[in-house]
Lab assay of single mutants.
Amino acid sequence: NITNLCPFDEVFNATRFASVYAWNRKRISNCVADYSVLYNFAPFFAFKCYGVSPTKLNDLCFTNVYADSFVIRGNEVSQIAPGQTGNIADYNYKLPDDFTGCVIAWNSNKLDSKVGGNYNYLYRLFRKSNLKPFERDISTEIYQAGNKPCNGVAGFNCYFPLRSYGFRPTYGVGHQPYRVVVLSFELLHAPATVCGPKKST
């Protein structure tokens, strides 16, 4: 009989979020998941679920829940969905086509923008091939755009693969920082350890 609540607040209220190319993952297990707390949290810009209804989450049990978190621009949030393409979905964070879970995003301009620009948040701009679902690539190898080998030196046709967002408070909404948490639900042939409040007695 599990009684402790799942530590969703640790994920959602973290002081610093990860850059999207180096997205953070927390495994959540052996706890009671009260999703209504999240669902009623006012400032969400997006709360979209795939393969599961957000209002039914509290009735369900899962083997594991993974909480992935990172920061992207407002106009990139739409790429955090199954079957998407674009710089983020291709080179930074890719969801599987059969994704079961929820994508939760909110504007973090007050936290993550600075006058003069916040350059701490990076994304991958160049990559030889697209990421596989949930693949994480933190390499900083110089990207070779031409035929000539770069030998690890940036220059003509040789690019550092990461780019900084440089968030400023005055940017338009599409270019403002958004914090994103992706909850993915794993249902294995194993005992369920993460259940909603109704199922955990």
Rank of each mutant, 00 (worst) to 15 (best):
N1V: 07
N1L: 06
N1S: 08
I2P: 10
I2L: 13
I2H: 13
N4K: 13
L5V: 11
P7Y: 05
P7I: 07
D9S: 12
E10T: 09
E10K: 10
A18F: 04
A18S: 11
V20E: 04
V20Y: 01
Y21Q: 06
W23S: 04
R25M: 02
I28V: 06
I28K: 01
I28H: 01
S29H: 13
S29W: 06
N30I: 00
N30E: 07
C31D: 07
A33T: 07
D34I: 03
D34W: 04
Y35C: 06
S36R: 12
S36L: 05
S36Y: 04
L38S: 02
Y39A: 14
F41N: 11
A42P: 06
A42W: 05
F44M: 09
F44C: 07
F44W: 09
F45P: 10
A46I: 14
F47Y: 07
F47L: 07
C49G: 00
Y50K: 01
V52H: 03
V52C: 07
S53C: 07
S53M: 09
P54K: 15
P54E: 12
T55Y: 12
K56P: 03
N58I: 06
D59L: 05
D59N: 11
Y66L: 08
A67Q: 01
D68K: 01
D68L: 01
S69P: 00
S69T: 09
V71K: 01
V71Y: 01
R73H: 05
G74E: 08
G74P: 04
N75D: 15
N75Y: 08
E76M: 03
S78F: 05
S78T: 09
Q79V: 00
A81R: 06
A81S: 06
P82R: 01
P82N: 01
G83A: 07
G83I: 03
Q84H: 06
T85P: 05
G86V: 05
G86I: 06
G86M: 03
G86D: 02
N87G: 08
N87C: 10
N87M: 15
I88H: 01
A89V: 05
A89I: 02
D90I: 01
D90W: 04
D90S: 09
Y91F: 12
Y91S: 05
Y93K: 02
L95E: 00
P96M: 00
D97V: 09
D97Q: 09
D98W: 05
D98S: 09
F99Q: 00
T100F: 12
T100R: 13
T100P: 00
G101F: 00
V103L: 02
I104G: 00
I104M: 09
I104S: 00
A105W: 09
W106P: 00
W106E: 01
W106R: 02
N107F: 02
S108E: 06
S108F: 02
S108H: 03
N109P: 03
K110T: 11
L111M: 13
L111Y: 12
D112L: 00
S113W: 03
K114T: 11
K114R: 13
V115H: 14
G117I: 06
G117H: 09
N118H: 08
N118S: 12
N118F: 05
Y119W: 10
Y119P: 15
N120G: 12
N120C: 07
Y121W: 05
Y121D: 04
Y121M: 09
L122T: 15
L122G: 15
R124D: 05
R124Y: 03
R124F: 03
R124S: 03
L125D: 15
L125Q: 15
F126G: 15
F126L: 10
K128D: 11
K128L: 07
S129N: 14
S129I: 08
L131S: 03
L131Q: 03
K132R: 12
P133E: 06
F134D: 07
E135N: 05
R136T: 05
D137N: 06
D137Q: 02
S139M: 06
S139T: 13
T140K: 11
T140R: 12
E141C: 08
I142V: 13
I142T: 10
Y143A: 09
Y143G: 08
Y143H: 13
Q144M: 09
Q144N: 11
Q144T: 10
A145Q: 13
G146E: 09
G146S: 12
G146R: 07
G146L: 05
G146K: 08
N147C: 10
K148A: 12
P149F: 10
P149T: 14
C150H: 06
N151M: 11
N151R: 12
V153D: 13
A154G: 13
A154I: 11
G155P: 09
F156I: 13
N157K: 12
N157F: 08
C158I: 04
C158D: 06
C158W: 05
C158Q: 06
Y159E: 15
F160S: 15
P161D: 06
Y165H: 06
G166P: 06
G166W: 06
F167A: 05
R168H: 14
P169G: 08
T170K: 11
T170R: 10
G172Y: 09
V173I: 14
V173L: 14
G174W: 09
H175Y: 13
H175S: 13
H175N: 15
H175D: 15
H175G: 11
P177H: 02
R179G: 02
R179P: 02
V182C: 03
V182L: 01
S184C: 10
S184G: 11
F185M: 09
E186F: 00
E186Y: 06
H189R: 13
H189W: 07
A190L: 11
A190S: 13
P191E: 14
P191T: 12
P191I: 05
A192R: 12
A192M: 12
T193W: 07
V194R: 10
V194E: 11
G196Q: 10
G196N: 11
G196K: 10
P197M: 15
K198W: 11
S200M: 14
T201I: 13
